[in-house]
């Protein structure tokens, strides 16, 4: 079912991680990604893993939820691993067995390395979205990227578009489920036939979905106008953010981990 996708979902809560300032969380996630890509060897993952462990422990959201979400990405993970194994160099892993000659030590090591990196990457960014409401997230982006306005990048408009997209994703997912069932009730078959047939079978779903999205957009535009929306000019914000001790603790931990990894790279 479409409803099982957990990536990008927000789980409301009141944990330490939930209460971090979204701007800080965004910054921490950026630093986390940088650190992750700097990691030189498996020991580095221990540092990142420990950091991630803290996040899991202090967010109140169990790893199980994340791994359910991972299932839908298994393809990408397997794909990456496959290519790393295929194109990895080094000595054969099993020198005695000739038909396993393509399995080289270096390749397997690389594949493992990449898998861990991807999983940690997904974990880190997932926990950002799990613990931060999408509105707060776009808010934080709008604020962090405000300087870009100087470059004539419409930061407010982009943020508003993202907020609305995020708000309507669950609604449109529900709608898609309903349309699929309605067409199934008229005997539509989405499960058999070759690719062309299956692609064509999507038309009865996509067209109603598009029409519904347009209708909703029109009504939403009216509703926004009625509530005095007139662009970013002169707007105040409901969410006021201020850094607390939590943010500084989190930042300190992140910087410590990052320094450790940089040290690993140097030595």
């Amino acid at each position: 079912m479409l409803k099982d996708v957990t990536i990008g979902q927000f789980f409301p809560g009141n944990s330490f991680v939930h209460r971090l300032d979204p701007r800080m969380k965004l910054l921490l996630t950026l630093l986390y990604v940088v650190a992750l890509f700097l990691v030189p060897d498996f020991w580095g993952f221990l540092v990142i893993g420990a950091l991630m462990g803290l996040v899991v422990a202090f967010s109140g959201i169990s790893l199980r939820v994340v791994f359910r979400g991972l299932k839908s990405l298994i393809f990408i993970i397997v794909f990456t691993a496959f290519f790393n194994i295929l194109y990895g160099g080094g000595e054969p892993l099993f020198p005695g067995i000739s038909w396993l000659g393509w399995l080289k030590a270096e390749g397997v090591r690389n594949a493992l390395f990449m898998i861990i990196r991807i999983i940690l990457l997904i974990l880190g960014t997932s926990y950002l979205t799990y613990t931060t409401s999408p509105v707060m997230l776009t808010d934080a982006m709008e604020r962090l990227f405000r300087p870009l306005k100087v470059l004539r990048i419409p930061v407010h408009e982009l943020a508003m578009m993202m907020t609305i997209a995020l708000r309507f994703i669950p609604t449109l997912i529900d709608e898609t489920d309903k349309i699929i069932n309605a067409q199934k009730a008229r005997g539509a078959d989405f499960e058999t036939g070759n690719i062309v047939r299956r692609a064509r079978a999507l038309v009865p779903i996509l067209i109603p979905l598009l029409i519904s999205a347009f209708r909703r957009a029109e009504e939403l535009a009216d509703a926004m106008e009625c509530r005095c929306y007139h662009g970013g000019e002169g707007r105040t914000r409901y969410k006021v953010y201020s850094f607390s001790w939590r943010d500084w603790v989190a930042l300190a931990l992140m910087l410590a981990a990052l320094s450790l990894i940089i040290l690993m790279v140097i030595f």
Binding site: V135, R167, R216, E219, L220, D222
Partner: peptide
């Protein structure tokens, strides 16, 4: 308006 789904803008 009639459809409550199409007039709520935020996710909270």
């Amino acid at each position: 308006f009639q459809n409550p789904d199409n007039q709520l803008i935020a996710t909270v």
